[in-house]
Design a protein around this nucleic acid. Structure first.
Lengths: 134, 134
DNA sequence: TAAACTGATACCATATTAGTATCAGTTTGT
DNA sequence: ACAAACTGATACTAATATGGTATCAGTTTA
């Protein structure tokens, strides 16, 4: 069971790298090298973050990406939602038969509670809080 | 992101079914029909539970399975561990580079805390508590 | 005007999950 | 005795998700 996949992991690293970088704009090539992340894969990830308005993109030579939002406003939960969908721990059981009998209701309450705890924890974690330049 | 997969889901249903059953021994065929779970798949799952000493098995005609432990001692966490391995939300990041710098430490603390919360919640959920015959 | 970049998108490899099939052995009703 | 109804063990297949690659088109700038 995994909470954070590669996309989210790499996205975090890249965002923190950008937040810590002196230059405004950082290219995929640079991040790929420094963070040792496959270039094409990282590019795909950053393109998604751009579409989601987390990053600004600059085309052409010397182009690259920069943060569109300050790092303390980018939450781990946001990234997980973007790359792994909403937190939904138990869709398999409740997707079709929604609370068909009491046992599922009890379970559902527990799961809902758990989801709440997880969400609020992940909300409390900003990319800025993970940077050494705090 | 899923907390409970099919194996665990079906295992729960079967265990609750056995706990609620009047007869001591219940066959896979019966449970497969009543719970609408593919027979061979369910069988594989119950064989695992037998190996793990959660169930007793009875061979031959009129054979089947019964609980080896009372339902209130079978915890959701146990089943998840059996079928999905230990709860380890973030192996991908920490497997190789264990806390290489501060950012991972902060993240690791949060994740560790979360894992604790999840574990204790799942521990508090017994199969008996999910049965209507409480 | 070519090098260095992003946009978009299609593709491939691998791992995990879900489900199927089957042969061997055990027990029991008739 | 023996076949039906069951489990033990294990191999196999299908579907889906994840991780990663490739490429053509367009943009910017030295």
């Amino acid at each position: 069971m995994k909470l954070i996949n590669k996309d989210t992991d790499y996205a975090m690293q890249a965002i923190i790298y950008m937040a810590e970088s002196k230059e405004g704009v950082v290219s995929v090539s640079e991040m790929s090298e420094k963070l040792e992340i496959p270039k094409h894969f990282l590019r795909k990830i950053l393109q998604i973050l751009h579409k989601k308005k987390v990053l600004k993109a600059y085309e052409g030579r010397n182009g690259g990406f920069s943060l569109a939002i300050p790092a303390d406003k980018i939450l781990l939960l946001d990234l997980i939602k973007i790359f792994q969908g909403p937190i939904n721990l138990i869709e398999c059981i409740f997707k079709k038969k929604i609370c068909p009998d009491i046992r599922h209701c009890i379970l559902k309450k527990k799961i809902d509670y758990l989801q709440g705890v997880i969400s609020s924890e992940l909300k409390s974690l900003s990319m800025a809080s993970l940077s050494y330049r705090r």
